[in-house]
Structures are given as C-alpha cells and as structure tokens.
Design a protein around this nucleic acid. Structure first.
Length: 813
RNA sequence: GCCGGGGUGGCGGAAUUGGUAGACGCGCCGGAUUCAAAAUCCGGUUCCUUCACAGGAGUGAGAGUUCGAUUCUCUCCCUCGGCACCA
C-alpha cells in the first residue's frame, strides 16, 4: 500500500498547479467574480505563524469559492516600505532596498512551499516605482483639488541624534538609540483632508453588514461625531477665545477655563511670565500620544488672564493645562468641575470652585455627576432639561453672534509626511518665489535613490543628498528644493487592493479591470488594523471614486479580523524571542499539516495560543485519512451505483452523517467562518467512515460517496494530500476545480429523535420519540421513565414545558 | 485613562436562536501489537461521593431576569488588541 510522504505529495500537487496555471485569472470569464484578499505582509524576514494563519484563512475561502464555481482573484504582494528596513540598514550596513528585496524573495518561496492558491502573475511591491508613481500622481491631483494642505504638526525629536522618532522608537520618553530625553517639536507637514469625508465614513458603516460589529463600533467611536456649541469668551488683554462644548447646559457651572500649552493665549501669557514659560517647556517634554495624555498626572498653571462669562459676566480664570489637546476642537475648554470628572479632579488639585448646576442629591465636592438632568443654579434656565437648555442656549448665542451650533469630529486630518528615507517621496518642490509646487505629471515618478548609506543616527540619507533635493521650480525654473519627506506607509496600503486588479497597467493608476473585480468580496487581516489601516483604505477608496477611478463606495464587502498568534500569552515578535518558525514545521510535517493545524487550533477571530503538541495531532489525522482511503482503494471493490431506496438502518445512519457533515462544513466555511469546527466535523466523519466496514454493494458505494465528499471538503485546508487521494480514487482533473459536494436533503430526514427529560431544569432521562410525535405522546413517554418518577412522586406538578424535538421540563414543588 | 475583544476540564477549544456543558483534538491512564521500543489500533478520562445504579458541584467573581443562563442585564476582577510616526 502507498505510504504518505508529505514532501512528495506536496511537490506533485504544486507541480500540477504550476503547469496548469490553475490560479491565474483574468476578467474574461462567464463565471461570477470573487475577490478574496488577505492583508499583504511587510517583508520583515521570514514568515511567522501570524502570516501562516492569515494566509491560510484567505486560502480556504478562495479555494472554497472556486469549488463553488466562482472566478476567484486571490493575489499577493508586499507592503515594502517601512521603518524596519532602515533599522536593518543601520545594523547590517546594507541598503534598505537590498534587504527588502531579499526578504520578499524568501517569503515568496515560503508562500509557494505552503501551496497557497495565488495568482502569482499579479505580485506587486509598493517600493517599486511602477507602483508608487501612481500614488504620487494621485497626491498631485488631490493637491490641485484642495484635498491636501500643509500645516505645523508635532513630532518626537531626539535632540542628540538630531532626528525625528516614531512613537515606537520612544521608550519611556527617551530615544531608543541615544537614550536622550525626547522633546516635542513642531514642523510643517502635509495632510490629507480625511475629515471632509468624516460624515460619509461614519454613515456608510450602517450599510456594511459584512463587517464585524466590533470593528464598526471602534471606527464609529474613532470618528467620534459630537454635537455641541462653540461659544466665544471674551478675554480682555487678549481677544476672544472659542471653546467647544457638548454640555452647554452646564454653562453656569463653569469655574475656570483651560487652554492647551500650544494655544496662542498660552504663548502670549508666557512671553512675560518666566514661570509659565517654564511650565510650557515642561509640557513640551511630555509624550503627546493619547494614551500618555490620558494617564499622565493632570497639571496646570494660571495664566493670570481672565475670561468673561457670556451669561453671568463673571470673571473666569484662564489656565493652561497639559491635558488639553490643541488638535481637538479649538484647543480650549470651559471647565465644569461639578459635572465632568477630569475638570473635577483638576479643580480639587488646584482648589478651584465646584458648582452644582444639574439637580442631584450627591455631594458635588466628592464626585462629579456627569448624567443629564434638570438645571439648577442657572438663572433663567432653571428647571429645563438637557435638550431644552441646549436649544435655548443655542438660540441665545446665535442671536448675539457669539456662539454657534458645531458638529465636531474626534477624527483628525491624516498627516502623511514622514521624515524617513525608506518610503515614497512626496512629489513637491519648494521655491522661494513660487512656494510649494507639485511636481508636474510628466516628471513623475520622483524616484527614491536606492543606493544609499545609512549613518548611526538613523537620519534620512536623502536629506543630505543635494543630487536628490536640488532641482528647478516647475513654475519659474529658478533654483528650488525638493521635499525630502516621504509618505506614511499607510498611503501605499490604502489602495493596493485596487492595483491588484491591474498591477502592470502603465497608462494610469487603475484600468477598467478595477471595476470588474472591486469591491473585494472578502478581506482578511489582523484585528490590530481595525481602525487605522481600514479607515484610511475606506477613505482612499471614496477619494478614488470621486476621482472617477472606481465606481464603488466601499473597498471591502466582507471583513474577517483574525486574532493574534500568541506564544506564552504574548504577541509573537522577534524582540521577545517567542517566535515559532513555520519552516521547521513544514520540513517536518509538510505544508498540509501546518495549514490544517493553524485552522483547527482556534476560531479565526480569537487569539491563538501556540502549542507544538497540537501540530502532531493534525499530522496524525492526515496519516489516518491517507491509510483509510488507500485501504479502501487497495480492496479493489467493484463499485455499483448507490441505491438510496434500499438502505439498511446502519447505511442510512452513515448517509445521514455524510450529508449532515456536508451541510455543517459548508455553513461553517461560507457563513460562520468557523474553520475549526468544520475540521472537527470532518474528523468525526472520518472516524465514522473508518469504522464502517460494510462490504455489500450499497455499503461500498456509500463509503465511496463518503470518502469523495470528505476529500473535496478537506481540499481547501489540505489541498496537496487531497489532490493525490483524488487521483488515486481515479477522479478526473484537479480536485481544486471539482464541484463542492451538495447536500441531499432526503438523507437528512430522520424518523426518530432523542429528547431530554428534565425535572426542575435538571437532566433526569433521555427518551427516543418519533419525529412527528405530538406533545401529549411526548409527555406520556417522559412520565413513563423511572428516574422521572423518582423526582416527581409526592410533589405537585406546576408546569410541563415541551420544546419539540429537544426537551421536556417538568416543574414540581 | 478611553474604545473594542476574551476568560469554559491538565491544555487548545465545542455548545450556531435562552434548552443535554465539555464535540473534535492534545495530554494522561489502561489494554492489544512487539523480543523490546517507536509508530499504529482499541478503551477510559471535568471534579467530588459511589462496587454499581445514581447523586452532588461546576463555564473568572458577585447579583439579577427565567421553568431553564456558558448564552441576556448590572457591578467587579484578570487579560489581549488599538489609541493617530510599528505595520
């Protein structure tokens, strides 16, 4: 009997796919299109288990859809620009390009070894000028449309290395290389107006049934639409400052105001107040990321200026506070310590007055009361509720011209400038006379020099290369300087899914093939991308639409967010040294085992705690399957057609199991996307088939039906072994191109069902009843059980609940 | 801190609509096979009481709704992901 040798089996199957170009697709097909995509990898070195999990998920769905008769596009490429290449460059003294291309080659070899059904002819890399030139082209176009602008923004500055640091490179407020205390620095940067699309990005979420609710909720909260009033406070000796508040009903409770350390009022006040200037300088050393802002100690200092309360005319002290964000609202807030927790904490610390202006009976000095309620201590507004007060305040301020209704978003415009080398150059030229000019279309792409040398500090080499940045102004042709910043790498990953439809098109960013394939039917990737990448891509898609390049509103119809692969409870990463190398497992067990185990270990949305032992089980299963089928083949039965009218009870039972499994596996893959339970069901069927040793004509025919259905269903998970078993069963063509098995509903009809009998909710007996038994019959049978008697006798029967085909519950007391 | 997940045997997990808690697999225990071992095959395996039949407890903790809660509600604990320059 033929032995199972995974390496040979896998080589054989992969050769067939390669020769027949099984997974190469084009749009000229009568079949319905299906676009299946997993988030492309950053080429960081070798594949890790997170990649294997991600790519096996899209693989199973792609192969399943192909067997459902679809024309499946399943591409792969590389998100090739990014920070790790620069770190590797410093460490290994190699140019980032060289390191990146070598990694891509390694990873492609591994992906091929895993037998993934990609259309390799569409492979792309975002660091390829043929890719990024279109990104530059689009940026220029958006520049002309006014969707791009330049403004000052904060970066982490390492004063020793004289370089900008990514958040990741700041450890406990210090530069990771120099160890120097990092400071906030403000420099001009380019922004995309994602806020112009905030309303639509939010509204579309309601019409995306294929996305998990958790992701939609996170995006909704991130966009953070809030309705409030913008109110102007007069500050003598400064001018007006506006504050945004969602709680105008608490206006009478304002006891101070707070502005961000970067606010013009703070800067003016600090000009002749050295103590305040020192405080602002302290604030500039604090981390500006949101988590740090929210957890740090709240600190403030009075500016000496006062604002005039617009309703009471009271003088309100204006403070500078380290927790007020210049980037949200107006950079200034009115503080109501009685009804806002943060304001309360701050008021206690600095001994500022706390007033109750919403009715309640708690001690307002002890804790803020943040719920809506009836206004008190609020002059003419006493007795109103939130909505009434909001409306009347709005009318009052609008009439006076010192306030207005304002819809604010938490979402900020997308800063796309990076002071990095390994990225797409921003196509802008600065001319002293003409200002910032976009690079003319004819001069695109602006090529990133790849032959560069990195110094220890990590500064971008192109910033020191006159041959790169010295140029001519496209307007006046005078001497000018090129922008040396590059794009955020999210720019590349925001449209790659569209470029996969026409990766070699050189007449434009996208060809008309984009509209054939888009939107992506199924997108799969790590849950860590739930907000940033997925929001930027949605935004970019709408921009592409408005530029006439695609005709859909959303890029991804259905989204599957996979959990992390953990080892010892933590995300696998090189720095933690807890990675599992899939290559060693492939060498030992073969690709099919690794794929099968990665799907079997946990449902995709959950994080997966890695265990080496489990892999052994997947390997054993494939061996068992192989031996069972080879044994069946070796017996050389003469197979007759199955006669379903004439089955023994055992045969009927097996056929029920076969078709129940087809129904279950189909539902698990297509609808529930719970691949672990699909595999468990197939294992159960394997166990049932291997125990079934009926050699009658019908028995043999039934076993054949079972084994063939099984290997078809298993083939998306373990395609190599299934292909060889398919051939050994004398089946024509490729199993990858076979039709998915179909449920015979007649096989699922059962005449008898098992029901559970409970007394007071506790299981006391099980009964077999005919499937169409009426309630009275079922009750009678339940009460006939001895064990039911034991718990019912001598008690009063209060109620009998019968759930058809499931259970009987007798309630006694 | 805020937003979103998760917590079930020794372990990974199952229970799809509120209806048998622990499917499937790992590990472990016993048996068969073997000179022996590995591999393989067969059986057992939540905990406690019991020779057995059976009974009791049990899904992070506590409360609630219900005939019935892993599932719904509330409070709390632990843990993972994200927080805009890691990708």
């Amino acid at each position: 009997m033929k032995l199972y040798n995974p390496q040979d089996v896998e080589q054989h199957a992969q050769n067939l796919w390669q020769e027949q170009q099984t997974f190469t697709v084009n749009q000229d097909s009568d079949k319905e299109k299906y676009y299946c995509l997993s988030m492309f990898p950053y080429p960081s070195g070798k594949l890790h288990m997170g990649h294997v999990r991600n790519y096996t998920l899209s693989e199973v769905i792609a192969r399943f859809q192909k067997m459902q008769g679809k024309n499946v596009l399943h591409p792969i490429g590389y998100d090739a620009f990014g920070l790790p290449a620069e770190n590797a460059a410093i460490q290994n003294k190699t140019a980032p390009a060289k390191w990146t291309y070598a990694n891509m080659e390694d990873m492609s070899a591994q992906l091929k070894r895993l037998g993934f059904a990609y259309d390799w002819s569409r492979q792309l890399a975002t660091c390829d000028p043929d890719y990024y030139r279109w990104e530059q082209w689009m940026f220029v176009r958006l520049f002309k449309e006014g969707l791009v602008y330049r403004k000052d923004a904060t970066v982490n500055w390492d004063p020793v290395d004289q370089t900008v640091l990514a958040n990741e490179q700041v450890i406990d407020g210090k530069g990771w290389r120099s160890g120097a205390e990092v400071i906030r620095k403000t420099i001009p940067q380019w922004f995309l107006k994602i806020t112009d699309y905030a309303e639509e990005l939010l509204a579309s979420l309601d019409d995306m049934p294929g996305w998990p609710d958790s992701v939609k909720t996170m995006q909704k909260n991130w966009i953070g639409k809030s309705k409030g009033l913008e109110i102007d406070f007069e500050v003598p000796d400064f001018g007006d400052i506006s504050v945004f508040t969602t709680r105008p009903d608490t206006l009478y409770g304002v006891s101070y105001m707070a502005v961000a350390p970067e606010h013009p009022l703070a800067l003016q006040a600090a000009a002749n107040n050295s103590e305040l200037a020192e405080f602002l300088s302290q604030c500039s050393k604090e981390q500006s990321n949101e988590a740090a802002m929210a957890t740090m100690e709240k600190k403030g200092m009075a500016t000496g200026l006062t604002a005039i309360h617009p309703l009471t005319g009271e003088a309100i002290p204006v403070w500078v506070a380290n927790f007020v964000l210049m980037s949200y609202g107006t950079g200034a807030v009115m503080a109501v310590p009685g009804h806002d927790e943060r304001d309360h904490e701050f008021a206690l610390k600095y001994d500022l007055p706390i007033k109750r202006v919403i009715a309640g009976d708690g001690d307002i000095e002890q804790a803020a009361e943040t719920e809506h309620g009836i206004l008190v201590n609020s002059g003419d507004y006493n007795g109103l509720n939130f909505d009434q007060a909001f409306e009347r305040m709005q009318t009052y301020f609008e009439d006076k011209g010192i306030g207005r209704l304002q819809i604010n978003f938490r979402l900020r415009d997308w800063g796309v400038s990076r002071q990095r080398y390994w990225g797409c150059p921003i196509p802008i030229i600065y001319c002293d006379k003409c200002g910032a000019q976009p690079v003319p279309e004819a001069d695109l792409p602006v090529l990133l020099p790849e032959d560069v040398v990195f110094d220890e500090t990590g500064g971008s080499p192109i910033k020191k290369m006159p041959e790169f940045y010295e140029t001519q102004c496209p307007q006046c042709h005078g001497p000018a300087k090129r922008e040396t910043d590059t794009f955020d790498t999210f720019m590349e990953s925001s449209w790659y899914y569209a470029r996969f439809t026409c990766p070699d098109y050189d007449q434009g960013m996208l060809s008309n093939e984009a509209d054939h394939w888009l939107p992506v039917d199924q997108y799969i990737g790590g849950v860590e991308h739930a907000i940033l990448h997925l929001l930027y891509a949605r935004f970019y898609h709408k921009v592409l639409r408005d530029q006439g390049l695609v005709n859909s509103d959303e890029p991804f119809k259905r989204l599957l967010t996979q959990g992390m692969v953990l080892k010892d409870g933590a995300k696998m990463s090189k720095s933690k040294g807890n990675t599992v190398d899939p290559q060693a497992l492939i060498d030992r067990y073969g690709a099919d085992t690794v794929r099968l185990f990665s799907m079997f270990a946990a449902p995709p949305e959950q994080s997966l705690e890695w265990s080496d032992e489990g892999v052994e089980g997947a390997s054993r299963y494939l061996n068992r399957l192989w031996h069972n089928i080879q044994e069946y083949i070796a017996a050389e039965y003469s197979v007759q057609p199955l006669n379903t009218d004439n089955l023994t009870p055992e045969q009927q039972q097996l056929r029920f199991k076969i078709h129940q499994t087809i129904a279950k596996v189909t539902d698990d893959i297509a609808e529930r996307q719970h691949f672990n339970t699909a595999i468990a069901a197939m294992m159960e069927l394997t166990n049932a088939l291997s125990k079934f040793d009926d050699n009658s004509d019908n028995g043999v025919a039934l076993r054949r039906e079972g084994w063939l259905s099984l290997i078809k269903m298993l083939s998306p998970f373990a395609p190599h072994i299934c292909q060889v078993l398919w051939e050994d069963m004398q089946q024509p063509g490729l199993i990858a191109e076979a039709d998915w098995p179909v449920v015979d509903q007649a096989a699922l009809v059962q005449d008898e069902v098992e029901m559970v009998v409970q007394v007071n909710g506790k299981l006391r007996a099980k009964i077999k009843v005919s499937a169409d038994a009426d309630q009275a019959t079922v009750e009678k049978m339940a009460f006939a059980e001895d064990n039911v008697h034991r718990f019912v006798d001598g008690k009063t029967i209060r109620k009998v609940i019968v759930v058809p085909k499931k259970l009987v519950n007798v309630v006694v007391s």
